[in-house]
Computed example of a mutant assay.
Amino acid sequence: MLGRISEAWRYPVKGMAGESLSACRVTDRGLQGDRLWAVRDSARNEIQSCKFRPGLLQIVAQYARARGAAGDHSVQLLMPDGARVSSDVPEVHELISRLLGHASRLEPLSAQTDMAAFKRYKADGHTWLDELKATFEREAGEPLPDFTDLPQDMVDYVSLPGSFFLVSPLHLLTTASLDYLRARQPQSDWDTQRFRPNLVIDTLGSEVGLIEQSWLGGRLQLGEAQLRCTAAAPRCGAVTRAQQALPADTRLLRTVVREADQNLGIYANTLQPGLLQVGDPVYLHT
């Protein structure tokens, strides 16, 4: 046993803060109800993430009903000023636009019937890549992720076509990695919400360091679900941004780049759907 699930998080709206769960079903598209909404920039006609619109992190999104992904998909948004607004009301678009400083619309995934809805905005042949690199907010001498051989879908689309996921439907993080980085930068708050995992695995002190990086290619059993660990998660400037309960802190990114080869956590895909609960044991099969 590697450890136990200590936290489960679902993000009803892409780029916004999400909701903590005690149990959730894993589907072929990740945690049930994850990223069923997104914000579209009206001028660019492009789905936005917190990479490009960090103000999204100031909004907490929760499903209006506890079951979330079945039946009623409407969401409630807790704004930075404490106001609550439903995805059903017409003024929600204006409130989001005002916060982000860009004309925007909140849209459900169910309304996207054409692959063009997921297209990346390109003013020309290179500006889009310059913009993407800038979101990683590297300082002089710090490495960037390797962009030399991007899959064509990542070149053409701002999210996985047909979804609001950037790279993969599941993101995993361990307490061992957070403890490792916290020890190297104890002045920072290493709250898991900064890193937007779906699942946090408590390694129970049995492992130290960036342990999940050694799981790549392996198969995890969590409750009824099985996942394939697919890739490391390089970190961008979003981890430094303020959220409602967390201040901005650029030291977090400097530490991840310096001490963790710029990666924190891993991505995963679903091999076997099923129910998982906080407290479930986690096993690795190679």
Rank of each mutant, 00 (worst) to 15 (best):
V13R: 11
K14W: 08
K14R: 04
K14Q: 02
G15E: 02
G15S: 11
M16R: 03
M16H: 07
M16P: 06
M16D: 02
A17S: 15
A17L: 11
G18I: 05
E19L: 01
E19N: 03
S20E: 05
L21E: 08
S22E: 14
S22I: 13
A23Q: 14
C24H: 08
R25F: 09
R25C: 02
R25V: 09
T27N: 10
D28N: 15
R29E: 14
G30W: 01
G30N: 01
L31D: 04
Q32P: 06
Q32T: 12
G33I: 05
G33N: 07
D34N: 10
D34E: 09
D34Y: 05
R35L: 03
L36Q: 15
W37V: 10
A38V: 10
A38G: 11
A38L: 05
V39W: 08
R40A: 03
D41G: 01
D41T: 04
S42E: 10
S42L: 13
R44E: 02
N45K: 09
E46G: 01
E46M: 07
E46L: 02
I47C: 12
I47F: 13
Q48T: 11
Q48W: 04
Q48M: 06
S49G: 10
S49Q: 08
C50K: 14
K51H: 09
F52G: 13
F52A: 14
R53L: 14
P54M: 02
G55T: 02
G55S: 04
G55I: 03
G55C: 00
L56W: 09
L56R: 08
L57Q: 08
Q58N: 05
Q58T: 06
Q58H: 04
I59H: 07
V60S: 05
A61H: 05
A61D: 03
Q62F: 05
Q62E: 09
Y63G: 03
A64K: 15
A64R: 15
R65F: 13
R65D: 13
A66T: 14
R67K: 12
R67D: 15
R67G: 14
R67I: 13
G68S: 04
G68F: 03
G68N: 01
G71T: 00
D72M: 03
H73E: 05
S74G: 09
V75P: 07
L77P: 02
L77W: 07
L77I: 10
M79S: 00
M79F: 04
M79T: 03
P80G: 00
D81C: 00
D81S: 04
D81Y: 02
A83F: 05
R84D: 09
R84H: 12
R84Q: 14
V85N: 00
V85W: 01
S86F: 12
S86Y: 10
S86Q: 09
S87K: 06
S87T: 06
S87F: 03
S87L: 00
D88L: 12
D88C: 12
V89F: 02
V89R: 08
P90V: 00
P90N: 06
E91K: 11
E91Q: 14
V92A: 00
V92M: 07
E94N: 09
E94K: 15
L95P: 04
L95A: 13
L99T: 10
L100C: 11
L100N: 06
G101L: 15
R105S: 15
R105C: 15
L106V: 06
L106M: 01
E107C: 13
P108A: 08
S110P: 00
Q112W: 07
Q112G: 01
T113V: 12
T113A: 12
M115A: 13
M115P: 04
M115D: 07
A116Q: 03
A116Y: 02
A117I: 02
F118K: 13
